[in-house]
Amino acid sequence: MHIVVCIKQVPDSAQIRVHPVTNTIMRQGVPTIINPYDLFALEEAMRLRDKFGGEVTVLTMGPPSAEDSLRKALTFGANRAVLLTDRFFAGSDTLATSFALATAIKKISDTWGAPDLVFTGKQTIDGDTAQVGPGIAKRLGLMQITYAAKVTEYDAAEGSVTIERRAEGGTQVLKSKLPCLVAMLEGTNEIRRGTMADALRGARAEIIKWNAKEAGVEDLSKCGLKGSPTIVKRVFAPSPRAEKAKFIEIPEGGSLPDALIAEIFTRQPALEADLTELARGF
């Protein structure tokens, strides 16, 4: 089987700082990581490959430095890595991103064989839209299963896949046809460490690099800013609350809990009766 896993390199957002005066993101020196959600997709893909045989190709669109993430994926055990990089891709929104990735997946398919499955993460930690997975599926005409918790069955002969999907209020068990796009839910597995051999291979392996033309893009107006219907017009800091918290202190002869409760019910008078009702239910 052949599986393509889309991974994105993202800034480690725990370490992002905003410039206090200019309100711009200070990216300098912020380490980048593989989008954590994508590791669940990569691991699930490799487990299927280990079971059924075949190859896992990882694909990312990003600046040349995104090579680091691809190399990391190879050390985990992916078979091949493709970096889609071109200044024409800069400023892509999710529609333009899904166009570029879908085009590259077609080229991957022509070069190394059609994928049976395409995996993505549930969402990224920077853009955080969860829109790229469905976008790729629609552009390639693949079946689409998002919020996948588990691939329970894979039947190459029948060309089908059965997946447990997190839905509102429960778990949906879906059976669909291959090729299928699967957006993997977090916490569903744990990324392996990779073998020593993988580590060596990952460090040395060639990362396949394609610009827009090499990836098969014919219409550059569908890429980058030009191909993006959404436009970010304004970036600004949230307005601070006018007043800070009122601190409650121990009143003379009273207790702190009682003082707090009095404060709460003074500010929310209707709450007292309602809480009494609620509390009686217990």
Partner: peptide
């Protein structure tokens, strides 16, 4: 989970912008 699954697919089919 339903809305996000649907919105991304609809916006791509219609080739329009979608703010998340």
């Amino acid at each position: 989970t339903l809305g996000r699954d649907l919105a991304g697919a609809v916006a791509t089919t219609l080739l329009t912008g979608l703010t998340a």
